[in-house]
């Protein structure tokens, strides 16, 4: 082939690849804009704080208070986070600083598999085991009644789902602590616990926190598994044992069959935007922070 044609082809490919590379940017903007346009009819009728902080959800009467759903999302996610964070940080510490090479080899595929299991499987597991556990055992233990379909149930299922994400990212952060630092502490007579507490965690606490936030952002958007165990009652929850109705579940149950109730579609699109914003803020903060950490390490 002559040189001119090779270079011309080369240029064409450069342009094509460059154009496709803008697709992620284009897609993000398109998702935002489309949802915003679709939510607009309702926003022009009622003020945003009205919609967000009102607890009245009666689509037939034209009342679209999203507060019970937002609160439900926060309750479920917070429960999952409180359950998952300590467990996954301890597991990550064990893997990075205590485990033998052989154990690490065994744990890695286990965590991969946990991360790869579909959410409907977790949901089914939740209905089979955690719902009875909470309804028949935990609720009576605390002297209350619960059907088992509750915030606590969803929290437990979600906690298991975000565990692998937090563990994997944390292990990465923890393993990046220089061995020289640990050896220096050990040579001064520190126990391994002291090394972990005063050296490893001191060096990587913020990274581990970012890993947790990343897990948190996954938990916010989880749909099917939560939907199957959370009860789906559009009332602001009062305790761990009461049912809730998080935003993703609201979308999954009602989208696609929005009937002809005016404003309903807009309300659901508004719910989608709120969910999108919460998730993006959390995941972006964590990602940017982790990226900065790894850049600092490279230097």
């Amino acid at each position: 082939m002559d040189k001119g044609r090779v270079l011309k082809k080369e240029k064409g490919r450069l342009v094509a690849a460059g154009l496709i590379s803008f697709f992620p940017i284009f897609l993000t903007i398109a998702i935002f804009l489309l949802l915003l346009i679709k939510a607009f009819p309702l926003l022009s009728l009622k003020s945003l704080p009205d919609l967000i902080f009102s607890s009245a959800w009666q689509p037939q009467k034209g009342q679209f208070g999203l507060w019970p759903f937002i609160l439900g999302t926060i309750w479920v996610t917070a429960t999952a986070f409180i359950l998952a964070a300590p467990l996954s940080i301890l597991t990550a510490l064990y893997i990075s600083d205590y485990a033998s090479v052989r154990l690490k080899k065994w744990l890695a595929p286990v965590l991969d598999l946990l991360a790869g299991l579909p959410s409907v499987i977790y949901g089914m597991w939740g209905t089979l085991l955690i719902v009875p556990l909470v309804g028949k055992f935990l609720a009576p233990l605390f002297g209350t009644y619960s059907s088992g379909y509750s915030i606590l149930t969803a929290g437990i299922v979600l906690a298991v789902m975000i565990l692998p994400t937090i563990v994997n990212v944390s292990v990465e952060v923890l393993s990046a602590v220089p061995a020289e630092l640990k050896e220096a502490a050990l040579s001064l007579g520190a126990t391994r616990f002291e090394v972990v507490r005063y050296v490893v965690l001191k060096k990587s606490l913020s990274g581990v926190a970012a890993a947790c936030v990343l897990g948190l952002s996954r938990a916010f958007g989880e749909t099917i598994a939560v939907l199957m165990v959370v009860g789906n009652v559009p009332v602001a929850p009062v305790s761990l044992f009461s049912p809730a109705y998080p935003l993703p579940a609201l979308l999954a149950n009602n989208y696609g069959e929005m009937l002809s109730i005016p404003g309903y579609e807009s309300a659901l699109n508004l719910a989608a935007i709120i969910l999108l914003l919460i998730v993006i803020i959390f995941s972006l903060v964590a990602r940017l922070y982790l990226a900065r950490l790894s850049r600092r390490r490279d230097r």
């Binding site: 992620p24 993000t28 949802l35 916010f220």
Partner: peptide, 13 residues
């Protein structure tokens, strides 16, 4: 950013 978007939102989109 796209990685963080929940699949239900993709479904809506």
């Amino acid at each position: 950013v796209l990685w963080g978007i929940p699949s239900i939102v993709y479904g809506v989109f």
